[in-house]
Nucleic acid binder design. Structure first.
Length: 182
DNA sequence: GCCTGGATTGTCT
DNA sequence: GACAATCCAGGCA
């Protein structure tokens, strides 16, 4: 079992540009699986690349909930992506979890991912969801009080994150809101 | 090891 | 009807 303190609601209910980099080296837990977060991206409602830019829809409704929820969406016809909702109710902010390093439940992840090398188990947004068994049923899960998925702070210092442009987006490339710790 | 292109479906315009 | 916050297999160096 991974030791650590659960991040609380006030942590999430700040601006996404503050929460994003602080999520690095926190521990994502889903069932018996856990992993250290090493890459994230921030999305805001004033950002043309964000799902929330064009306002609330049935798909992105979770993004407009108060911070501390899990926002899961389906993309490219075959992949899920997991986000952490930040800011207050109606803010339309979220941090995309892009990559984690597996630390617990590795056997389960290997089984789900078809026996790939450990390095490749959860080093991308879609792979991360597959490894942790996250799907649309987890959309809207409460990270603060829920049992299924949560994020822990095990005391590891926040690293000096590198910022880079975000991946796979064609607009707003002048927002370097991607942080990686490796 | 690096680069290229195909797969596949929900959602919005 | 077009696009999307992607992944992986395959070809070539």
């Amino acid at each position: 079992m991974t030791a650590g303190r659960r991040l609380d609601a006030p942590f999430y209910r700040r601006d996404v540009l503050d929460v994003g980099p602080e999520l690095l080296h926190k521990v994502l837990v889903a069932g018996e699986c856990a992993g250290r977060i090493v890459e994230v991206e921030a999305y805001r409602s004033d950002d043309p690349a964000s799902h929330s830019f064009r306002g609330r829809t049935a798909r992105n409704a979770t993004m407009f909930e108060p911070g501390g929820l899990l926002y899961v969406y389906f993309t490219y016809g075959m992949h899920f992506c997991a986000n952490v909702v930040t800011g207050g109710a109606g803010a339309g902010q979220a941090v995309l979890l892009r990559a984690v390093v597996p630390t617990a439940g590795v056997e389960t992840m290997r089984a789900r991912r078809g026996g790939r090398p450990d390095r490749l188990l959860a080093d991308g947004p879609g792979k991360l969801c597959q490894a942790f068994g996250i799907d649309r049923g987890d959309d809207g899960a409460d990270l603060v009080t829920g049992d299924r998925v949560t994020i822990l702070d095990d005391g590891t210092p926040v690293p000096s994150a590198r910022t880079t442009p975000r991946i796979g987006i064609r607009v707003a490339v002048d927002h370097p809101w991607r942080w990686l710790a490796r």
